[in-house]
Design a protein around this nucleic acid. Structure first.
Lengths: 269, 269
DNA sequence: CCAAAAGTGTTGAAGTTACACCCATGC
DNA sequence: GCATGGGTGTAACTTCAACACTTTTGG
């Protein structure tokens, strides 16, 4: 009898201990969050027609504007790793190479009312000054169906041009990312990451038009791209399209590497 | 008699109060410093021969490597303003337009031994994680004789190419700044800020060579620059040089503004 | 046979690179 | 008169922008 009681007590206390332990771990984890530094990610995808950006919907009764996936960093964590981790936690996107855009440090960036009331719920120090580091990346949309978790109620692709409002100063970060992308497309062979392995030159063409947000002459575009020797013709044809089927192309890894390093630009002195 | 004593007491207490007040202000000021976010400035100057960078010598008995001017930001302060303030506090350089390079966030960036022992002396939380935001700027060296203050024992121009060691991860920040400068010189009319009002094309030529770190053909350089209509010929001559005197030029403000916005680059599609 | 996108060449203008000699000044 | 840096032109080549019609497929 005594033994039984002991067992029950031990078991109960064990359960309590376990609970406490979990709480502690959770608390430690939260305590290690640095209240002043966050990362935000602008993830671009291309649907063969227009550019899209990955945004999350923050769970809340009241209607909140969408946000870029982002959160505080841990104290021990490298910024770049924090961005990768946060992106995965909020959207399920794994192992994405992210490039830094810069720091966004307006002391009021956090002080919109709707944002403040949300911060009260999820942050330990909702009033703390936060400087955020922006990142951007380009991913193949086909490889990824948004999958929300953590405080993201849902994650979804939204056409860049339809976004008019975002949380905090995320519009500013998005604009900076768009601008950076425009710059980069002229300097580095970026399209790589936004298209499937096999693609047509028309798709690449539309991609460039979407990024640069202006029409490009078809013939000149093709000539120019092909002279870079960045793409190689697979001599395969599209199937099942209701028009003349296109040739398929692949990026050429070697030229890609080379151009990544030397850059494409040909103005300079 | 009573009155006299009262006066003395009041005066003494006043002095004490004032002391306390000053201490409080100083303490508040320090408390408002955010322990996790700093700024660092890479200031380039040109001496008509090579690029120089402004570095400070941190006062200390032991030999410390030089550092970029930089410090923690205040909680209420915009990042860009923090950079301007810190630069002035440490070097006396006022009202400089600084452009952000990006954030540097390696968690170990602070952990060199010599840096740690220095931090112990000047920081309230010497172990705190610090992410720093890098800035760069270009200034006319002639307008500025380095004038150290705060924890800077001295401030001095050092030729970029002679710098082999800096505090923290400042070498990394410097490298990023150099790289950014190389990019920018091809995109924006930057030389402006590094030369005196009146300058010769040869000086501009040497400046471009110094920044790009490679020789440029004299005639092609002149043609190209003059076609931009960025400089206008003052039809004045140099005096007192032991060779054929050069024509003097000025930057043309209007073209400058225009090129600043549209950029110079002519590769893109 | 029709709709829809693929694919292809030329031309005139502008820009790029490479290269060598004479000029004006102070000493 | 000599050392020093200032200043200039051309030719061969590459790149750029603008522009319209034929081809192949599915339905």
């Amino acid at each position: 009898m005594f033994f039984l009681v002991l067992c029950v007590i031990l078991t109960l206390s064990n359960i309590q201990n376990t609970h406490k332990l979990i709480e502690d771990i959770e608390k430690n984890r939260r305590q290690e969050l640095n209240p002043n530094i966050s990362v935000d990610c602008v993830i671009f995808g291309f649907d063969f027609d227009k550019l899209n950006v990955l945004v999350i919907d923050r769970a809340d009764g009241s209607r909140l504007p969408c946000a870029l996936p982002g959160d505080l960093i841990f104290n021990h964590e490298h910024l770049d790793h924090a961005a990768i981790r946060v992106l995965e936690e909020l959207t399920g996107l794994k192992n994405i190479y992210l490039e830094q855009i810069g720091a966004f440090g307006d002391p009021n960036r956090i002080s919109k009312e709707s944002d403040q009331s949300w911060l009260q719920k999820v942050r330990e120090q909702p009033q703390a000054r936060v400087v955020t580091i922006g990142y951007y990346s380009l991913v193949k949309m086909e490889n990824y169906l948004p999958q929300a978790s953590s405080f993201a109620k849902s994650a979804a692709w939204i056409p860049v041009n339809k976004i008019t409002e975002l949380a905090f100063d995320h519009m500013e970060i998005l604009d900076a990312a768009k601008q950076r992308l425009k710059q980069m497309i002229n300097i580095r062979p970026i399209g790589f990451n936004l298209l499937p392995e096999k693609f047509t030159l028309s798709q690449l063409h539309r991609l460039y038009e979407a990024i640069l947000d202006k029409p490009l002459d078809k013939r000149n575009f093709r000539r120019k791209i092909q002279k870079l020797e960045l793409v190689k013709n697979l001599k395969e044809k599209q199937f099942g399209v209701p028009h003349k089927p296109s040739q398929l192309f692949m990026f050429d890894g070697k030229t890609y590497e080379k151009l990544m390093q030397t850059g494409i630009n040909n103005f300079g002195f």
